[in-house]
């Protein structure tokens, strides 16, 4: 039995009330969205906030809408199940719908939110354990200890970013809207919109640049190219549930002549931040999808990914096996995107 540590629960009905609570309690307070990551982490004593602020009653944070400019705007508290089955998301950002559909199992997708998945804590097999387990180990660099058990003698935490939606949103060029406390004397909402690529830093302890007291309120996805195609591939222990051992999101822009005009691949669950696979457009742009030249370009891209992606011993899966799976999943996911299919995963 795992009991939660004691905390005070606040349930504000508006964003302003929530921001006031964070301003009042500072670092003693933590926001809870779906709770599917924070609750187990609190049960493991990885977080012991004095005040937990539930965002569940703030209606303004939920919903998916398409703006007049063709942009998708998704409230941070929209559940992953709603993102996965939304026809607007499936049409305009298939890679995001696929990534959301592969997160955990049905119950967790009903509870978990898109904002919560973007802001997910990094994971490591030496960290996501009970307090008893971690005490026996002597703790680790990320929490309560001074030693890294992944990199012997390492001084930097390498816990893995494990959020499936993050690479999907990166290939789509999404932006994140944060709202912070309104400074005294001001009446305008204190909004900050950043590209999702600018959120990350390569530090497993906290892998995001955020300002104190701010809340992620919405995710904006710009209108994609006319021939936009996307797919998500996910390697995991059990196809029914589980965090990724490796995940890759693919964007392919295809012209009317079926030739690739733009491409992006983003990988996750390797190191502390999701990252783009570099120099892939040099290989793919100009190739007609479905042709032999396209297939050989996909092979070269898979090699590039193999060279650039180095999984560490931070998740339960064997790091060497995960690395060998990188080109396999990149190749299959690229072909799935080209065919307008996906997601790519095993059962």
């Amino acid at each position: 039995m795992l009991r939660l540590p004691k905390f005070e629960l606040e349930e504000p009905a508006t964003l302003d009330e929530a921001l006031a609570l964070f301003a009042e309690h500072g670092s003693d307070a933590m926001p809870i969205a779906g709770g599917t990551d924070l609750v187990p982490n609190m049960k493991h004593r990885l977080f012991e906030p004095k005040v937990v602020v539930s965002l569940a009653r703030i209606e303004a944070l939920t919903g998916i809408r398409v703006t007049s400019g063709g942009e998708l705007e998704i409230g941070a508290m929209t559940t992953l199940a709603d993102v996965a089955r939304s026809s607007a998301v499936q049409e305009r950002a298939p890679v995001l719908a696929q990534a959301a559909s592969l997160i955990a199992g049905p119950q967790l997708r009903t509870m978990g939110t898109l904002g919560g998945n973007v802001m997910l804590d990094t994971r490591c097999q030496w960290y996501n354990q009970t307090h008893f387990w971690r005490t026996s180990l002597g703790y680790c660099l990320k929490k309560d200890g001074t030693e890294c058990h992944v990199v012997q003698g390492g001084g930097k935490c390498v816990a893995a970013a494990s959020n499936d939606t993050a690479p999907a949103l990166m290939t789509l060029g999404a932006t994140l809207v944060f709202q912070g406390p309104t400074p005294p004397g001001e009446s305008k909402a204190n909004l900050r919109e950043i590209a999702i690529d600018a959120l990350w830093k390569a530090d497993g302890i906290v892998n995001k640049h955020t300002e104190p007291g701010e809340i992620l309120t919405a995710i904006r996805i710009p209108a994609q190219a006319a021939g936009h195609r996307g797919a998500y591939g996910k390697l995991r222990d059990r196809g029914s549930i589980d965090f990724p051992l490796f995940g890759c999101a693919v964007r392919l822009d295809v012209g009317t002549d079926e030739a690739v005009t733009g491409a992006d691949i983003c990988a996750v669950a390797l190191v502390a931040r999701p990252s783009h696979v570099k120099r892939i457009e040099d290989e793919l742009v100009g190739q007609r999808v479905g042709s032999d030249d396209f297939a050989s370009a996909v092979g070269r891209v898979a090699e590039l990914a193999y060279k650039q992606c180095r999984p560490m011993d931070n998740s339960p899966g064997d790091a060497d096996y995960r690395r060998e799976m990188v080109p396999v999943y990149v190749r299959r996911t690229l072909h799935a995107a080209a065919q307008g299919a996906g997601p790519v995963h095993h059962v």
Partner: peptide
Amino acid sequence: DKGDCGACTVLLDGSPVLSCLRL
């Protein structure tokens, strides 16, 4: 008790959720 097994599943407004993770 940490969201892996589904033994605590209940229906919330008709949708299955994990009651061990739901405050």
